[in-house]
């Protein structure tokens, strides 16, 4: 509940304040967002499974974001930034789909 409210508040704040993305953050922000989304979906699933743990959620959230950004950073340095970004997005996308499927089974029993 808090998480959903905070998400909405964050979106509203982002829309109201209209900040511009700093240049150094530009390559990492989309990947970080996707990684955080993965963590959120995982958290929702765990909550539905009844095994939610705030600490695990916080740690996985932060580590997801950091690792995703790190991968992109390394990819950029190695000259394969675009490919690694794609790889990260694909992997995270698969995980989000898996978690979404589990959530769906919980919610719709199907």
């Amino acid at each position: 509940m808090i998480a959903a409210l905070a998400l909405i508040v964050g979106i509203v704040v982002g829309l109201v304040f209209r900040p511009t993305v700093p240049t150094w953050l530009e390559p990492y922000l989309p990947i970080a967002v996707v990684a955080a989304l993965d963590a959120v979906f995982g958290g929702v699933r765990a909550r539905l499974d009844g095994i939610f743990d705030a600490k695990v959620f916080v740690v996985s959230f932060i580590s997801n974001v950091v690792v995703a950004a790190l991968i992109v950073f390394m990819g950029d340095k190695l000259g394969v930034g675009a490919q690694l970004s794609t790889a990260v997005v694909v992997v995270l996308g698969i995980r989000i789909f898996g978690n979404a499927a589990a959530i769906r089974r919980h919610v719709f029993r199907a």
């Binding site: 808090i2 905070a6 998400l7 508040v9 979106i11 982002g14 970080a32 955080a36």
Partner: peptide, 8 residues
């Protein structure tokens, strides 16, 4: 964290 995510 989720607020930051929404913001981002």
């Amino acid at each position: 964290l989720t607020a930051a995510l929404g913001f981002a």
